[in-house]
Simulated assay, not measured.
Amino acid sequence: MPIPTEPSISLRGNLLTPSGWRLGELHVDAGRIRAVEGEAVDPADNDLPRLLPGFIDLHVHGGGGADAMEGQKAVATLAETHVRFGTTSLLATTMTARRDEVRQALGEITKYLESPSTVAARVLGVHLEGPYINPGKLGAQPQHAQTASIEELDALMALAPIRLMTLAPELSGHAEVIRYLSDKGVRVQLGHTLGSYEEGVEALAHGACGFTHLFNAMTGLHHRKPGMVGAALAHAEYAELIPDLLHVHPGAIRAALRCIPRLYAVTDSTAAAGMPDGEYKLGEQSVTKCLGGVRLADGTLAGSTLTMDQALRNFVTLGLSLAEASDRLSLFPAEFLGLHDIGRLSVGAKADVVTLDADLNIVSVHVDGRLVCGESHVPHA
């Protein structure tokens, strides 16, 4: 079902363009940026709105009380929830589950894609996180881990557009699987793994191209046994990280920022995102939101309540400029998926725009030029 777009709008303020900040106007026709006008500026010199490319979250399980494994309506709810926090594109992320449950979830996501909400973040496809992970490094994943086969992967890819898959590379046959997925255009991240540094490096050579929630649910760094974290810090161009300042210590985040050129933010958010403290679902499991986090009954961190606007502010508190932080929420995840018409405010790109005030709070969100959140701060052209 085609989604309507605004025929023509103009947005004014401090524009973050690929060539730097401009004070001027962004002109939009039929959902795409037609022109960018303005003079170079330091946004710190004025209080006009800051216009950034829409945020892109490649790892989001839920939000607004809904979990992606629950079906079509739940996917709509999570997409409608996260757009309020500046996310304009996302990957609906599945959990480790029984084979029939994974297949059912993928079918439901496809149903949503055939009739998407018009007031929601764009769902780009699926991040399949599990079940092809190490049963010894489940984290908050249920105990349904298994080894991948090409035959089964073909069946799953026929059900939904799987854009990204998390695998444990050390499992038998997964080197071949990584090569196969890479040839099919599916991005492979290493995660929920007990793999060694050497197995991580080998997986990258086979076509893996990233790491899932860096530092979490993987073998850590030791100076004589550098582990999967060491492989990422030494060799990765891309890796995702949860910058809620709970999953990863600020010092470790700073180390990763120095080592991995295109480290990018994800929320790994659960149904509890955007909701009050209480009990929620994460796949088949119950989790509790309290004290700013989400945990299983045994205290294990189980995803997050992070939203992308808070991820942006957290990066800035760690010393990144607003432009640098924006790249890690928009440009780098777009590049990771090979998408060149989102994640940037440039002529021809989709008009996905997050407008912030001087304190980096959300003012409005546009998707394909449509105002889906907040109030328009400029009249239509």
Rank of each mutant, 00 (worst) to 15 (best):
A35D: 15
T118Y: 07
A273V: 12
G136T: 14
S89A: 06
H213D: 01
D341V: 03
H340R: 13
L156W: 05
D352H: 11
S376W: 08
G54L: 05
A271Q: 05
P169Q: 12
G283M: 13
L282I: 09
D327A: 11
A121I: 15
Q141V: 15
L48F: 07
G13R: 02
R344Q: 04
I342F: 10
M275C: 10
H380K: 02
L233H: 04
R187C: 07
E108D: 13
S364H: 07
V102I: 01
D244Y: 03
G207C: 05
G283E: 14
G207K: 00
G38W: 07
A160R: 11
T17A: 02
A351K: 05
V354T: 12
A155D: 15
L318Y: 03
L246I: 14
A175K: 13
L296G: 08
L78N: 05
N14C: 07
H247Y: 05
E237Y: 10
M308D: 02
A265Q: 03
G63M: 10
P161K: 10
T267L: 02
G125Y: 03
L153E: 04
G343Q: 03
R224F: 12
K281C: 10
A323F: 07
L345Y: 09
M165N: 09
I3E: 03
V347R: 14
S326L: 04
Q285A: 14
E279C: 09
L106F: 01
A66T: 08
Q104K: 12
G71L: 11
G200Y: 08
Y197T: 10
L356R: 03
H59E: 15
A158F: 06
L301I: 05
V28L: 11
G210H: 03
D183R: 08
G54F: 00
A74C: 06
A351M: 08
V347G: 15
E37H: 14
D67W: 01
T88V: 11
G299I: 11
A381M: 08
S376Q: 13
T147P: 04
G348P: 00
P142R: 15
H144M: 09
